[in-house]
Design a protein around this nucleic acid. Structure first.
Lengths: 305, 305
DNA sequence: GTCACTCCTGAAAGATATTTTCGGGTCCGG
DNA sequence: CCGGACCCGAAAATATCTTTCAGGAGTGAC
């Protein structure tokens, strides 16, 4: 008894169930029991050792090994590996049922999956819908700017701060405003080489539009990052960057996906500017990194050894 | 603060590459070599025995086993099984599409595509690596909290504010701190039913750890959102939520992906809490939405038609 | 600069798991 | 009823994985 198995077949990848059925007639009773268990529950079987599977099927280790051989594997170890692969495939196969809305009684694992999926979707949409010409123009304006002012309130205010934090790290003069009064008084002082950016999902947030209008009228280059390019804010914007709008629901406020979208746009702006001003940006980034190292404790997992 | 390894995570099925990246900094040199080989070629590695992998990486069997343990598996055998599953998934599934790093002379369209892809990847990794048990525990604590304090500086400070903004909208009493002194003086007043959350990518930001420690010692429930579950911050955390770490580069600072990852975690926390407190959260959300409507101009696209 | 200390590291012993061997048992045909 | 072929599982043999232990490199303190 040497090569019994089907025509020198290589280790079957996924066609295992089929192979079991094909070979079943040529199997002995005990081997059939083993093969059946294997085909019926790959995942469960993959978790078992030879002895375990032997006990489960009421047979012996030897029989299990013989079955594995018959199925085309060098031994049980390899069958088990293939089984694990099969299980993983099946697992991932039936995944994408996450399109549903988040419900009140969703288990926490579903919430994680759905949120992650939605935000991924938002990113894809944003990237697809972003006008690279407008983006390039905005980057050019920023790279040449003497001073940058960013307006945003609530969730968009955080995005504004994020952009400012980044710009500061590459040596740009930037400031974020969430106080509309201060923003306006500041906008009055802007001039031709300056850039003002308004971030508003709705495109109609008065507290943000007003300072942008003032900046616009004082000759600054103005940029709007909004989900509504037809909104009021666009009237005062030289460049409009459109963020995507995902469906919202009671448990998933619009702020969530608009924030994700806005952040991607802001990241693109930052990287674009960093590219254009690489000569000064690179050392500045390095320096800021260096300076922050001291704020971290030297011990306790901080050092990468 | 108990187990050193990643929050007692169950064997990760597909989040292996992410886990490797997350844990890599806390690994020793030899273990990193092993982890690298494993992450780089799951299929090839799955075919090797402990001894084989040890030889391939120029280390010893002991080191291989240690690495497997660190990655959350009981031993090498189980890691190998997971690897086989991963390989099978990759085989059948999508193209990995390894994105190159962002270069200084990349056209703007490439920058957008790469950033979007990287952030999507970060989201997937985070979702896969998030310990839902820890998350559930944190949600429970938050839902029952009398008062919530969130600590974070720099980029993490914005995430902290984002969480607070959300919690406020569903009627929770929450506050964000970026001033370490104020944070500490505030932490002193926390008591048993209160929750303190520290957000730090490095896990070793003193300005954030200190208030968390104080809160911990005063009996508050403490949560750490960090990319380094082995970091100092974990010593004072009742619940540890691990964010994922993407490879960074000169033009793509770590802050970018860690922020994305942190925001996903924060969103999950928020939705979880909103679910648990639906009775009060839903009307509060509706009310805040209503109240904000007046801040938008009635004309010019403000109304949703 | 030196010393003490911690922690990494691999060799080898020890424990498990897998494969092989071997003999009893069963079934069938004569 | 008897002989032969072939299943089958217990146990030995082997391979693989895990644990222990001591040497050694790197690090911080003095």
């Amino acid at each position: 008894m040497k090569e019994i198995f089907a025509g020198g077949a290589p280790p079957a990848p996924a066609a295992l169930a089929a192979k079991v059925r094909t070979l079943a007639p040529s199997m002995t009773r005990s081997m059939q029991r083993v093969a059946e268990a294997v085909a019926g529950d790959p995942a469960g079987t993959a978790a078992l050792t030879v002895t375990g599977l032997a006990e489960l099927t009421g047979t012996s280790e030897a029989t299990v090994v013989r079955t594995a051989r018959l199925l085309g594997y060098p031994g049980y170890r390899d069958l088990r590996l293939a089984l694990a692969g099969l299980a993983a495939q099946q697992q991932s196969g039936r995944a994408p049922a996450v399109t549903a809305d988040i419900a009140v009684d969703d288990p926490i694992a579903d919430v994680v999956a759905k949120l992650a999926y939605d935000e991924q979707q938002t990113l894809a949409d944003t990237a697809a819908g972003l006008d690279t010409v407008q983006l390039g123009a905005a980057v050019s304006a920023l790279a040449a700017a003497r001073r940058v002012e960013v307006y945003g309130v609530a969730a968009s205010g955080l995005v504004a701060q994020d952009l400012v934090q980044k710009l500061l790290r590459i040596g740009q003069v930037a400031h974020a405003h969430s106080d509309p009064h201060l923003a306006v008084t500041n906008a009055v002082t802007l001039r031709a080489k300056d850039v003002a950016i308004a971030i508003t999902h709705s495109g109609s947030t008065g507290d943000v539009i007003e300072p942008l209008r003032v900046a616009f009228e004082h000759g600054a280059t103005t940029v709007a990052i909004t989900g509504r390019p037809d909104g009021l804010v666009s009237q005062y914007a030289d460049h409009i960057l459109t963020t995507s709008t995902a469906r919202e629901s009671e448990l998933r406020p619009a702020a969530m996906s608009s924030r994700t979208s806005q952040l991607l746009v802001v990241d693109c702006l930052f990287v674009g500017v960093a590219q254009r001003t690489y000569e000064t940006a690179a050392p500045a980034l390095a320096a800021s990194y260096e300076a922050l190292a001291h704020r971290h404790s030297p011990r306790g997992g901080g050092g990468s050894r």
